[in-house]
């Protein structure tokens, strides 16, 4: 986690998908301080979206810890704009929606995920196991 789930009407080519995933990873890590190995981005196409939208991203992110409503909204807007730049879609053609999950509800690396901001010890522990 996070998992960024992207749906588009039309397929994006591989280079654009890879560049978009990289941009999302950069933005997510810069704004939240999360490590990039947490960031998953998946793409699906052939999804007829609501009128006026060419791409929709829904993201499941860890909530709590050092994340407040302002940071979450900043992240949502930055993700939408970053995707717009890599795909060429206008910002208003991209919808971005974030859903917050308690970290304690998920497991990765064989351990319950750390609270946002407490990743360092978790990473050290799970990588040295």
């Amino acid at each position: 986690m996070p998992v960024y789930n992207i749906a588009t009407n039309y397929p994006l080519n591989y280079e654009i998908r890879k560049a978009t995933a990289a941009r999302i990873t950069d933005i997510h890590c810069q704004l939240t301080g999360a490590p990039p190995e947490f960031v998953n981005v998946i793409f699906m196409h052939g999804h007829p979206l609501k009128k006026g939208k060419e791409l929709s991203v829904i993201c499941n992110v860890r909530s709590g810890g050092n994340r407040n409503a302002e940071l979450t909204e900043d992240l949502r807007v930055a993700i939408r704009n970053g995707i717009s730049e890599t795909t060429g879609y206008l910002p208003q053609e991209v919808s971005a929606h974030l859903l917050g999950f308690p970290a304690s509800w998920a497991m990765e690396g064989g351990e319950i995920l750390p609270e946002p901001g407490e990743e360092t010890a978790w990473l050290h522990r799970t990588h040295s196991a």
């Binding site: 986690m1 998992v3 789930n5 749906a7 190995e37 998953n40 999804h47 007829p48 979206l49 609501k50 009128k51 939208k53 929709s56 829904i58 499941n60 919808s95 929606h97 859903l99 999950f101 509800w105 998920a106 497991m107 990765e108 690396g109 064989g110 799970t126 196991a129």
Partner: peptide
């Protein structure tokens, strides 16, 4: 271990996830 992410999500939030995937679509 780092290739497997599992979550056990309570029904209210799970419904949000499930429904948000439907709600972004047009009727078709």
């Amino acid at each position: 271990p780092h290739q497997v992410m599992l979550a056990l999500v309570e029904e209210t939030l799970f419904a949000d996830v499930f429904n948000s995937n439907k709600q972004r679509l047009s009727p078709i």
